[in-house]
């Protein structure tokens, strides 16, 4: 969003959120997942500032309490810390499991694998089902570990 509602931030927030309505996943959960995903992809680093609650609600029009809740979950997990008067910052981060280049390579492999599966006549649903049984669902694992 370009309206100056955001105000002149000293530093641009390091992540922008988006909310998928009607996905069944609560909005606070989506925010938490997006931060974790950005961390695991190496898009967020220690010291990065998350957008303020005000910035988030002005951008994605959700309830301020939802953002508070997401940030509390992340803080309880030790992923971020709130610094009084300054904002919410990423604390320490485990280094991403693979370099961005390596991740792109892996994604390329996956793409060609999907192409082979399609050529062999598998439907999109069948492919998704195959992926689901091959990999345990990380979202489910996370939820049960909370």
């Amino acid at each position: 969003m370009n309206t100056p509602l955001n105000g002149p931030a000293a530093r641009e927030p390091a992540i922008r959120f988006h909310i998928t309505r009607g996905s069944g996943l609560p909005a606070y959960r989506q925010l938490v997942d997006q931060v974790r995903q950005a961390l695991s992809l190496g898009l967020l680093a220690a010291g990065d500032r998350l957008p303020s609650v005000r910035e988030v609600v002005a951008e994605v029009t959700i309830n301020p309490n939802t953002v508070h809740r997401a940030y509390q979950v992340l803080e309880a997990d030790g992923v971020v810390e709130a610094r009084a008067g300054l904002g919410t910052f990423v604390t320490s981060v485990a280094p991403p499991s693979a370099t961005p280049e390596h991740q792109m390579e892996l994604q390329e492999d996956l793409r060609s694998w999907a192409e082979r599966a399609r050529r062999s006549g598998m439907s999109a649903e069948a492919i998704s089902a195959l992926i689901a049984v091959t990999f345990p669902n990380p979202a489910h694992q996370r939820q049960s570990s909370e």
Partner: peptide, 14 residues
């Protein structure tokens, strides 16, 4: 509408 909701939420959040 959207612009009004943004204004409302940003102020309420503060």
């Amino acid at each position: 509408r959207e612009s009004l909701v943004r204004l409302l939420l940003a102020t309420v959040a503060e």
